[in-house]
Design a protein around this nucleic acid. Structure first.
Lengths: 224, 224
DNA sequence: CCGGTTTGTAACCGGTCTATAACTGACGAG
DNA sequence: CTCGTCAGTTATAGACCGGTTACAAACCGG
């Protein structure tokens, strides 16, 4: 489940993304309005969390633009007391709003409620090239081969890599997206996870064709 | 379509009821918690709209009480800023929430969405493949075998799984759909319920052919 | 009120999954 | 050449998950 968060407050952006990742979502980050729109177009996230106060393109404008083409659930972040903002957000088609500051529990509860309302609580299979990842079944299908069962972590790893297939994803980012950031020495975990994943999905685990290493940079998923 | 509205704010109560009636619904009005419960018992409405802040019996308590016997859709009215309330409402099994103040359009849209969802669930296929579920008789028939009597919970479990037959349904979702809430120790309940259901419906409960486990993901019903 | 049924709670077990550490080989810098 | 780093591999202990058994509490029909 991909969620796009847009906020110009760097700290808050990281914090929200962190909370989402902790709860099992895949978080996409945008620091301003224009990049929110381009990420939205490129990644087709399942939910948007937009700060209203962003320089350049405000959350309102992003929401308005998104609503021209999509009914994706939108949650607005507002500053407490701005009654006008709230009304306008709802007029523009936002589905919910949250007053800053908010607690992690609140944010997650509302995100979950919104997704449920959008009936997206049931995740649909994600596919690219000859790879098809079924988030419900926890399986990966390669071409016409029988589906391979994956564990939770393997699924998350492949989900992140698949969302960026063809491009290298840094180890740091993988750590954050899969585990939700830990100590510096946790590269061991990633090493292990990649190894186990390769045992399962590669024809020849020693010469990976799908889950490839990009020396010094991270890993990359090739889909064809 | 009967809708029960409970609010101690007389004006708001009348207003909401008026909006509903305007839109073609039959509105039942309750000025406090206890009368909401008694009207609910007497009239069996199709949807509940509960204000959280009511003297005597709060909307929480009403919701909790109603959920002991019914899965009727519940919408909570919350005051803007009371984030904790919202979290609690969703945990108690409320289906949606609305922040006051709200626009008539929003209210009606959400009411409509809730009713549509509820109707879909009720009208969902009672039979699929060789399985036939009789919701009145509380029985399950497999192929041409004699019908098997089911308890309330078993019936609900199979109803949800049957509505999604062939696909894995997550444990979280099952908990919410069967019990109406989700808590810490509830994993045990599901484990038990599945075990009991298998004893009844499977030819060989240790090697289930119908009610299968999807490791790490949940359970799945196979109908043929 | 009684007795059976249904539901909730707990303990136990075996298998799987995850975290952690140690070892190996490849590679590049000095 | 030697050292340090990086990625892959192997090994293992503990956590976690799902199934099972047992029993207590709540509920229900007579």
């Amino acid at each position: 489940m991909k969620i796009l968060v847009a906020d110009d407050d760097r700290d808050l952006l990281e914090l929200v993304a962190f909370m989402l990742v902790q709860d099992g979502y895949l978080a996409l980050k945008a620091g301003d309005g224009p990049s929110a729109l381009s990420i939205f177009a490129a990644e087709a996230p399942d939910l948007l969390i937009l700060d209203i106060n962003m320089p350049g393109l405000s959350g309102f404008q992003v929401c308005e633009e998104v609503r021209r083409t999509s009914r994706v659930p939108v949650m607005m972040l507002t500053v407490r007391g701005e009654e006008e903002d709230l009304v306008r957000a709802l007029e523009l088609g936002a589905d919910d709003y949250l007053n800053k500051p908010f607690s992690p529990r609140t944010l997650l509860a509302r995100v979950k409620a919104l997704l449920r309302r959008a009936r997206l609580e049931v995740a649909s299979p994600v596919s690219a090239g000859r790879l098809k990842l079924d988030l419900e079944e926890h399986t990966l299908q390669i071409g016409a081969q029988p589906a391979i069962r994956l564990t939770k972590l393997e699924l998350r790893l492949l989900q992140v890599l698949l969302a960026n297939h063809g491009r290298a994803v840094s180890s740091d980012r993988l750590l954050i997206q899969v585990w939700g950031h830990r100590g510096a020495g946790d590269r061991e975990l990633l090493k292990q996870l990649v190894h186990r994943a390769r045992q399962k999905i590669e024809r020849e685990p020693a010469n990976p064709e799908i889950l490839q290493t990009v020396p010094g940079a991270g890993y990359r998923l090739l889909v064809d």
